[in-house]
């Protein structure tokens, strides 16, 4: 049995079925890429896995650590060891990144405001962040800013990966982390993710383009079209998509990003 087992997952948005039976086994230590054209259900997959209230599950199961996580609240899923790096991280005014990260970390440790011994100390917190900020080429000033407030596209995505590095998930879903990123940011993000790779982490990279896969080598690539996987294989699948795009499934879209002038 795989560490993270998606079985016949069906989900809909506003009454419209988007995922039409998705099955996928992810083991820790593996990096899977899910690729697909626009509208294929990539975002629905990532949001449904994390329990976003806008997506409803119509069937199937997702087993992780002996539980069907579809029965859990989003925060319970996170504390169980799941993480979702959002395609569009939201700006939350009034809450500093430091407060956000500290509260998230404390929640993972079971600190509920009572047993102070469970809370992360300021010293430990600083130590924890120092190297991670460096790898992501972020400076301390990020921490005093409000969540994603005034961050550039690249900064937002790097801040997502910083949160991942701090929370140390066992299953991480990166939803279009490469979209809207300059090449430097992609490299920083990829380096940070590659450092976290190892026997304790399974990764699901969701992407339209093959570009990020040049920097984070996937073990498995799956092609999602119209809510179902149409092809699964090793990294050669990404190479094939690089050449032919999604046209063989009736989609004429590019798999490499347009250069932005």
């Amino acid at each position: 049995m795989a560490d993270f087992e998606i079985k016949d997952l069906r989900a809909s948005v506003e009454g419209r079925q988007i995922l039409k039976g998705v099955s996928l086994d992810i083991n820790k230590g593996e990096v899977h890429a899910v690729m697909g054209p626009n509208g294929s259900g990539k975002s629905t997959l990532s949001h449904t896995l994390m329990g976003h209230p806008g997506y409803s599950v119509d069937g199937g199961s997702v087993m992780f650590k002996g539980q069907n996580i579809l029965d859990l609240e989003p925060d319970e899923r996170a504390r169980l060891g799941m993480f979702l790096a959002l395609q569009y991280p939201v700006v939350v005014p009034g809450i500093s990144m430091a407060n956000f990260l500290r509260t998230a970390l404390n929640s993972h440790r079971g600190y509920d405001g009572k047993d102070k011994s469970k809370a992360v100390s300021p010293k430990e917190f600083r130590g924890l962040l120092k190297d991670k900020l460096k790898v992501l080429h972020m400076d301390d000033s990020f921490l005093s800013r409000y969540i994603n407030d005034g961050f550039s596209g690249g900064e937002k995505k790097r801040a997502e990966i910083l949160q991942m590095a701090v929370l140390k998930p066992e299953i991480a879903i990166l939803d279009e982390t490469d979209s809207g990123l300059d090449i430097d940011s992609i490299k920083f993000v990829a380096e940070a993710v590659n450092r976290m790779r190892g026997p304790n982490l399974g990764v699901l990279i969701i992407t339209h383009y093959t570009r990020i896969l040049e920097f984070i080598q996937p073990d498995f690539v799956h092609v999602l079209v119209d809510g179902k996987f149409v092809l699964s294989g090793g990294s050669e699948v990404a190479e094939r998509l690089e050449k032919t795009g999604y046209s063989e499934w009736g989609h004429a879209e590019e798999t490499t990003p347009q250069e932005v002038a």
């Binding site: 994390m50 329990g51 976003h52 209230p53 609240e73 989003p74 925060d75 899923r77 996170a78 504390r79 993480f83 979702l84 959002l86 991280p89 939201v90 939350v92 005014p93 009034g94 809450i95 407060n99 956000f100 509260t103 998230a104 929640s107 993972h108 509920d112 409000y146 969540i147 949160q163 929370l167």
Partner: peptide
């Protein structure tokens, strides 16, 4: 906002409290 905070493991009541404090921040 609430989903974002909860997706990081922050329980709903704590997340709501943070968002209210943030609103007044």
């Amino acid at each position: 906002h609430l989903f974002y905070l909860r997706s990081r493991g922050i329980p709903e009541p704590t997340a709501k409290r943070m968002l209210i404090q943030g609103f007044f921040g």
